[in-house]
């Protein structure tokens, strides 16, 4: 284990919450969620390959209330990680590091991901559910 006599960085709870910190934490959290969600894609393709019964079972699962809530979560995770990922690519190009720009682009990632999620789910619900 680590030598605890050395100075440690302050713990998370002493910081005043800022949007830049939220976007950073959410990027990791949604990345982990999406890694797990990839298994759903695998399951879907597998159910297609293994026959009509297993495909219908897959559809019933993702169309159930629990399935829809999970899909909603994964939709937002995907759009958030996408928006904030594009933001990070611009930052990797050296752009947007002034504090006002940094804060503005943080909000843009959050608001953009929510808008995209709403658009997709408005379409899904208006056409009668997920499956």
């Amino acid at each position: 284990m680590a030598d605890t006599r050395r100075p440690l960085s302050p713990h998370l709870q002493i910081y005043k919450w800022q949007v830049q910190m939220v976007t950073s934490i959410l990027h990791r959290a949604t990345g982990i969620a999406l890694s797990v969600g990839t298994l759903l894609v695998l399951w879907g393709v597998f159910s297609l390959a293994s026959g009509e019964d297993s495909y219908n079972r897959f559809k019933a699962c993702i169309g159930s209330p629990v399935g829809m809530v999970l899909l909603l979560g994964w939709t937002w995770s995907l759009f958030y990680h996408l928006c904030n990922g594009i933001r990070h690519l611009f930052q990797d190009g050296g752009m947007g590091y002034a504090i006002p720009q940094f804060v503005r682009s943080s909000w843009l990632s959050i608001v953009g991901s929510i808008v995209l999620t709403l658009v997709v789910w408005a379409y899904v619900l208006s056409s009668g559910g997920a499956a």
Binding site: L78, L82, G85, I86, H88, L89, V120, Y123, V124, S127, G128, G129, A130, A131
Partner: peptide, 20 residues
């Protein structure tokens, strides 16, 4: 990441096209 910007959008559109 750059590839996934396009692939993820394609995936979402394709899945929405396959609804029901």
């Amino acid at each position: 990441a750059a590839a996934l910007v396009f692939l993820a959008l394609w995936f979402v559109v394709t899945v929405l096209g396959a609804l029901h």
